[in-house]
């Protein structure tokens, strides 16, 4: 579904590339998370998958990037809009401002794609239920909380039925409650197995909870790629400016203090931690 081959990209006026010789294959239906310190290139990678690199930021892109068989550099943002959905951190800036209610806001993308009105209504209702926003359908998008606005942004993109959903740190500007609301929607999405999701995230506990696969970016290079249990428990994590989950940290501390578990695998989620300390 996503196919990157030797992708290198530099922003205009930048001396060093933001992405460095990246090659990557993500099959359909996979929930793939990318982690890395600030400035590691996560946002740039997300922007590349959605076509904003190079179409919006300009700059120099080499190698090939394909999403759902479409060559990113060879197509336009308008062509990519229905194929790749992008959600980013600031919930406020993702509201179009051109619609007065939550329902109409979700409709905006469908209207631009020319979906017939009779088909629109059921799709919007279904999506509002999925994002748990049915009760807010007739409110102003600006009257919602940050967490609700971010779920609205996800609903507004998903309703267009993109082949790939890209999320760039969707909870970094939310309070803990808002973050949890957003993650519970993402968990439902991960459970469907149909959606191909690419999530850039700093909160490793959430990544551990529902990613099928984890990538680690460091200074624009892909430095690790594997299942969450393996990557997140790896001792090299701190080399890349990342802090392991509190479960891993607790387990390491316990091992250091002489604790001998039945299963030697370091835990990265709550469930694994329960097993570890049993």
């Amino acid at each position: 579904m996503i196919q990157l081959t030797n992708v290198t990209y530099s922003y205009p006026r930048a001396e060093t590339p933001a992405l460095h010789d990246l090659s990557l294959q993500i099959p359909a239906g996979q929930f793939c998370a990318v982690i890395g310190a600030n400035g590691a290139g996560k946002s740039t990678l997300c922007a590349t998958l959605a076509g904003f690199v190079p179409h919006f930021y300009r700059g120099k892109l080499s190698g090939t990037a394909k999403v759902a068989g479409i060559d990113i550099a060879g197509s336009s943002l308008a062509e990519l809009a229905g194929t790749v959905g992008l959600v980013f951190s600031n919930p406020f800036n993702q509201i179009t401002g051109a619609r007065f209610t939550v329902r109409e806001e979700v409709a905006f993308g469908l209207e631009n794609m020319g979906v017939p009105p009779a088909e629109m209504a059921p799709r919007i209702d279904e999506m509002l239920r999925f994002a748990r926003l049915s009760e807010q359908a007739d409110q102003s998008p600006y009257a919602l909380s940050g967490g609700q606005q971010q779920r609205l942004a996800i609903a507004s993109v998903l309703v267009m039925r993109p082949k790939v959903l890209v999320l760039d740190e969707p909870t970094s500007q939310l309070d803990p409650i808002g973050s949890r609301e957003v993650f519970s929607v993402l968990r439902d999405l991960a459970a469907t197995d149909e959606a191909t999701v690419f999530l850039a995230e700093q909160k490793l506990e959430w990544v551990a909870a529902f990613a099928d696969r984890v990538l680690v970016l460091h200074q624009g290079r892909l430095v690790a790629d594997g299942p969450p249990a393996e990557i997140l428990a790896s001792p090299t994590l701190s080399q890349y400016g990342l802090e392991p989950t509190r479960y891993t940290q607790a387990a390491r501390a316990a091992l250091g203090a002489g604790f001998r578990p039945q299963h030697p695998d370091l835990p990265v989620t709550l469930e694994q931690a329960v097993e570890f300390f049993r």
Partner: peptide, 10 residues
């Protein structure tokens, strides 16, 4: 960017 994602330029 948010507008482009929603097919505004189509």
């Amino acid at each position: 960017i948010a507008l482009e994602v929603r097919a505004f330029g189509r």
